[in-house]
Design a protein around this nucleic acid. Structure first.
Lengths: 218, 218
DNA sequence: GTCTATAAGGGGATAGAC
DNA sequence: GTCTATCCCCTTATAGAC
């Protein structure tokens, strides 16, 4: 019984703390953060603006007051998230002063760190782009990774006999795929959140090693 | 002018051929095929039952007549597609009579062939599972790949110092990731449908080579 | 079995009070 | 700026004719 009271009190305090933390952000910021959470989790089509408002602890009218429409709010978030994905790799892949090996280490490490705190990002982006390719294609500076990047040139120097895109696909796949396949890994029962954390941390060191190995493979 | 007539005639015949082929299938089958196409392309939430009926060249009421609801139709398709994904890899991964190298060759080849004619499948499955993990987890026999498969044992024999799940992730990632990332590859302008076909065909031979290389990498 | 027409409900957006 | 109440369209599902 006293346990119950203590527990209730602790819960109250946690709630209060939460409220206070929320209060540090404006309604606009809270709606945007809520929208990021819900959109990236469920995708555009499956999210209801009511869910976003509820997640933010605010009401639906505010969403339209600040962002005009679900569509416009989505567009803002999508652009930000595309930016977030590309701003990591483009400068790293185009740095002429680093070796290919250094690039691999940097990309694996920085991408995995970013995705660890944005686990839903890859699947969200990939799903939304496919639902509406023409809409976002122009916004993506993919050329800067896949065709005329310094990294592509460095890969070509090592393996002129294989299309360098193969290796870019492999690097990105090794980094991104675990996050995309997470629900499947978990369903095996062999992986939980802790084990997943260990795995992706190991991959920071393993991926550069692996990529060097496949660059040599005959 | 005569070209136009010929062209029109050819189109008419193509149309007729199409109609005849459609007629070979019952309304139920046509609706299901249409549903597979639309669901896997746009995802559950974004597809409207009207789109499915239209795609099948039939009307909305028929869909409910045969399948009761959008939900039930989706469930049927989802189960079939999960089956389709797992039935390829599970027997291959659990064949005690083949070497690990043979398994890699078989998995890469058969998966790539299947995904080539079901390009939307991976992203569809992954997106829907994440939107509703608890719903499908029990239906997936993932354990048979990730923990107690023959392949896992064979991997462990070669590299006892690294969690074998890493290698399964890498194999599947190398096979599946190009299909998931297709819209991004295309947006680079470097890859079109023909080039994509060439790439994934090359990967059938390259992936086993690469996996052998990373198994040795120190 | 297949169709048209319509009911029922959900969800995005706004009006108007405070 | 923030809220409640409400509008109205769009979508799923069904009734009922053929």
């Amino acid at each position: 019984m006293s346990d119950c009271i203590l527990f209730a009190k602790r819960n109250d305090m946690a709630k209060k703390k939460e409220k206070e933390m929320e209060a540090d952000f404006s309604a606009e910021e809270r709606l945007k953060e809520a929208a990021i959470k819900v959109f990236t989790q469920k995708g555009y089509a499956a999210t209801r603006t009511r869910d976003i408002a509820k997640e933010a602890g605010l009401n639906l009218a505010l969403l339209n007051y600040y962002f005009r429409s679900k569509e416009k709010l989505f567009e803002i978030i999508m652009m930000e998230k595309l930016q977030q994905l590309f701003e990591i790799i483009i400068p790293l892949a185009n740095d002429p002063s680093t070796s290919l090996d250094k690039k691999l280490t940097a990309i694996a490490s920085e991408y995995i760190d970013m995705l660890s705190v944005n686990e839903n990002l890859p699947l969200f982006i990939l799903h939304e782009i496919r639902s509406n390719p023409e809409r976002f294609v122009s916004k993506m500076q993919v050329t800067k990774i896949f065709s005329d990047s310094v990294m592509i040139k460095q890969i070509r120097e090592r393996r002129s006999d294989i299309n360098p895109i193969h290796f870019v696909i492999n690097i990105l796949g090794m980094v991104v795929f675990p996050f995309i396949a997470k629900p499947i890994l978990f369903s095996s029962g062999q992986v939980d959140d802790k084990a997943f954390g260990v795995l992706i941390n190991e991959r920071k060191k393993l991926i550069p090693l692996w990529v060097k190995a496949i660059l040599k493979a005959k």
